[in-house]
Write a protein that binds this DNA or RNA. Sequence first.
DNA 1: CATACATATTCCTCGTGAGGAATGCAATCC
DNA 2: GGATTGCATTCCTCACGAGGAATATGTATG
Lengths: 115, 115
Amino acid sequence: MVGAMEATLVLDALGEPNRRQLLELLHGQPEATVSELVEASGMRQPQVSKHLKVLGGASLVAVRADGRHRHYRLDERGLRAAHEWFASFEDVWLARFDALDELVSNDPNPEENSP
Amino acid sequence: MVGAMEATLVLDALGEPNRRQLLELLHGQPEATVSELVEASGMRQPQVSKHLKVLGGASLVAVRADGRHRHYRLDERGLRAAHEWFASFEDVWLARFDALDELVSNDPNPEENSP
DNA sequence: CATACATATTCCTCGTGAGGAATGCAATCC
DNA sequence: GGATTGCATTCCTCACGAGGAATATGTATG
């Protein structure tokens, strides 16, 4: 269900260092207001709001309104979508380990990985 | 050793749809020449070469020279770096499952997150 | 109600990076 | 050795997106 479409949104959104910084800041605490993110990131308020909008569009962050404050937090959905996109390439490095095993050991019978 | 620096390179490199397309094409076969990637991707040869250069700089692809052909293949290193970057956020969705557990059970005391 | 605060949005500018055409360079083939 | 193939690189242009300043929107506060 979590397909390439969402991974596209997420990877496009994360192709920007400041947005990754925002995600990492949000990783350190349960949630944070825009002002707190402005303070912590060194960016200016409009930039933070704009980046948060992009991250929200990729389901990487979610908002909770509280009076005039807006509390942002990480959204599992986007993160998992990207994680699974990369996981779909896992066979690449698993296959490489198999090849390494064959080279290192002189066991002519390398086991299959069973994920 | 696979740290934030490499994840930055990888995520920057993947913030571009055509580069992701090249990775996915390379995922389907062990390796491919530039000409084959040009054919399969619909992009023109210089664009493919340039994108492959960026992917190589992020350790996402590796090359094997063979006469006047260059065989590109996926490089596990960049893929793993990115996969691990996202894995560092795994606690986000794991914690969300925990919170769900608390809600489902009849604990009437929804605590604040205590970091 | 006026004012201050928190955030979102708009408008503008500018740099970066993607795409296209042409060229460079090395290796093969005749 | 000249021609051709396979790929990399250069130069140029152009669009997109990031950043800045100003403004809009909404909410508390006096």
